[in-house]
């Protein structure tokens, strides 16, 4: 297993290299630049600005300079927030997204796994219908509807919480619920589907035939195989939830990283786009590695290849 992980970690370098290169050139070919503004900047001033950020050099040289800096762990200055570095922005905002994401993930896992298993075991009976309905609700009601609804009820109607912001501990409740609920719905559906698949497998029937208790069957045998799809989903899912959600962070005005992913692209903040992409890529690669390890663990027949 250690060899497997080591080999995978070695693959990270070329993968990151491709991602950085592709992103670097993609953002440069998008029309508009960091200094495109409502009012035209006189060309002489634009030249001053570009010279300041080294944008007047040939693209290949800028690219090499950037690579050189990234290798040293410096993601460069932000174009939009001109006295902050990308490292600093990420260091500021990632913890917020992690905190929100981890809480939401806890909600999602508890709710999603619990309801999913329940629905599969009590298939086509009322617990299944109830759990499935909750799951469908999370899928049918988009976050940009759910979030404001919760705010209108708990903050404005009842006056228990703030409407938006990230100032006090209770400010975390509504965003975590909203974000958690969506993921809970996905996890619930996938768990139910995966479990149903496994509960029909021959070895489960064998276990049943041998008189094993239902609880034991579910926990010991069925969950392992049944969780495979959930686990595959959770790799990118967790990366997404931990790096923050644009919609949730906008509705609740949370100073997390999620808004930066989208806004940096809108602002043509080249370095910030790259910085967030590198971070996200690292998480995706890391989590997909974890997923692959867990998949092997869930199914002892598999070996690390």
């Amino acid at each position: 297993m250690l060899r497997f992980i080591a080999r995978r970690l070695l693959q990270v370098i070329p993968v990151l290299f491709v991602i950085i290169t592709a992103t670097f050139f993609m953002v440069r070919f998008v029309p508009g630049g960091p200094f495109t503004a409502e009012k035209a900047v006189p060309p002489e001033i634009l030249r001053n600005l570009e010279a300041h950020y080294g944008l007047d050099q040939p693209l290949w040289r800028q690219y090499l300079n950037y690579l050189g800096r990234v290798v040293r762990g410096d993601l460069g200055p932000s174009f939009k927030y001109s006295n902050r570095s990308v490292n600093e922005i990420i260091a500021d905002k990632l913890p917020v997204s992690l905190e929100l994401g981890a809480t939401a993930l806890a909600v999602a896992l508890v709710l999603g796994l619990g309801l999913g298993v329940l629905a599969a075991v009590r298939r086509n009976r009322w617990p299944d219908y109830l759990a499935s309905s909750v799951g469908m609700l999370g899928i049918c009601v988009p976050t940009f509807v759910m979030g404001p609804l919760l705010v209108l009820f708990f903050a404005i109607r009842l006056g228990w919480l703030n409407a938006s912001g990230w100032y006090t501990l209770p400010d975390r409740i509504l965003p975590a619920l909203t974000l958690g609920f969506v993921y809970a719905a996905y996890i619930m559906r996938l768990t139910r589907g995966g479990m149903l698949e496994v509960l029909n497998q021959d070895y489960i029937r064998t276990a049943r035939a041998k008189g094993a208790s239902e609880v034991r069957i579910v926990l010991r045998h069925a969950l392992r195989g049944g969780l495979l799809p959930v686990v595959a989903f959770l790799g990118p899912g967790i990366a997404g939830i931990l790096t923050g959600s644009f919609v949730i962070e906008t509705i609740f005005q949370i100073p997390g990283l999620g808004r930066e992913f989208v806004n940096s692209a809108f602002n043509r903040d080249y370095t910030l786009v790259l910085g967030t992409v590198i971070l996200y890529a690292g998480l995706i690669i890391g989590l997909n590695l974890v997923v692959d390890v867990v998949q092997v663990w869930l199914n002892p027949k598999l070996k690390f290849e």
């Binding site: 491709v18 592709a22 953002v27 989208v262 890529a281 690669i285």
Partner: peptide
Amino acid sequence: RIVDIMYALPFTIFVI
């Protein structure tokens, strides 16, 4: 690994 790369590329930029 190609899938990993595709995940990471910035979607907004890609669409534009």
